[in-house]
Write a protein that binds this DNA or RNA. Sequence first.
RNA 1: UCCCCUGUAGCUCAGCUGGUAGAGCGGGUGACUGUUAAUCACUAGGUCGGAGGUUCAAGUCCUUCCGGGGGAGCCA
Length: 461
Amino acid sequence: MQNRIVHLIDADPSETRINVEGWIRTKRDSKNFCFFEINDGSCLKNLQVILDKSTSELSEVITHISTGASVTFTGILVESPGKNQKVELQAEDVILHGEAPADTYPLQKKRHSLEFLREIAHLRPRTNTISAVARVRNSLSFAIHSYFQEKEFIYVHTPIVSASDAEGAGEMFQVTTLPLDDIPKDNGVVDYSKDFFGKPANLTVSGQLEAEIYAMALKNVYTFGPTFRAENSNTARHLAEFWMIEPEMAFCTLEGDMAVAEEFLKYIFNYVLNHCEADMAFFNKWVQKGVADGLKEVVDKPFIHLPYTDAIKELTSTKKEFEFPVSWGADLQSEHEKFLTEEVFKAPVIVTDYPKEIKAFYMKLNDDEKTVRAMDVLVPRLGEIIGGSEREYRYDVLTRRLDELGLDPKDYWWYLDLRKYGSVPHAGFGLGFDRVVQYVTGMQNIRDVIPFPRTVHNAEF
RNA sequence: UCCCCUGUAGCUCAGCUGGUAGAGCGGGUGACUGUUAAUCACUAGGUCGGAGGUUCAAGUCCUUCCGGGGGAGCCA
């Protein structure tokens, strides 16, 4: 655990003999000296190791050390005469744990395309970009827990397998133990009484409804876990398996919801800017120019609040031509969201009070009977990063809404019970964690910010 | 799922209006003065995504299937 390279590169020279473990990134060999760059994933930088071949008996073993090999060097940290590093390890001994034959090892010193790296997802964390993503992803996870824990939210584990057929947030993966080549049927209808749970079950598409249950007892809760959508969407922003964060707050209206969403985003962005400086500088320079600078701006500026109706006015009063027509009642398209965040306000925008027809049944109906207390946080570059709402907490209005939408109240019995017993205004939001990582790092494709992307026709590794 | 682009050496790509393939990097071998995308010399790698078709002749044109990318829809 000691001697991680992130600390060694800034350490002072010392007479103490130390061990350094890691993987070889490059080797520069000449007659008398051999230089290695060794990386252990603790940071982007490598530690330079120098080996004096004239005084060492290691000439044989170092011919087997090539890019990708795993080694432990023993030596002394000395001041480096070279200009690119403060210190370097003067090696006295080396253990070669595992060779990486250069004629077949796929990773080279040069840059690889992210598409190629995706095909070797078992080796790609050994690259600068993917390891930096892993560290930022880790820090963001920590920051998320840290924010909610500081605010005394309770972390709730909502189920992965859900037999509730009420969520309706997207296409679901069915979970079954029925034999697919011989499904038991009763008059042509699948006999789910023979299935594991005795009824149809799916992988969860959202933990929100279950989170509401716990909010109705613990006041402020959040979920942070995997979510699944079986949608045939093939874009740089969609995964079939992704991680979602869903806070839910009792005694809270949309105003409180928006305030938390803004504070939360700023907190986690700020955390990463402060704790992953080197990685963020890397993204800022090589992955997407100015991504870290843009993040700083988001942290400093107040978010714009804009009712849907005003957003429509904004979009219809511009001379800009849109591919999709703008009209009250239609959902905002990607191009509209981009226009608002990137051209009109140049800042994150929270659009509120959408028409009820384009939002979910559980959102609180406004007095106009036309709009609901929904909010979407839109950010430049990415579009919607957060979707949330104040929930409909009035029993009679909720049952009326279910009725209007042709939904069966029996399927929502426990959800309705929450409105029957001790109901209270409450609100929450959801955000896709992987999209946050994407936004923060500036990575173009969501498949490169999750270690093992699951997408249509792709579940390798 | 729809629209557009694309698939040539291990990687990144070039290959004009059809005449059976090239570069850089990487690999191997050797040289080398503390190198840092090291350098220099030599060298080996490809039935041009698969299957059909047009043609005297196909990497190049056509059909189709399969990958990959961009955009859209769905959404987080």
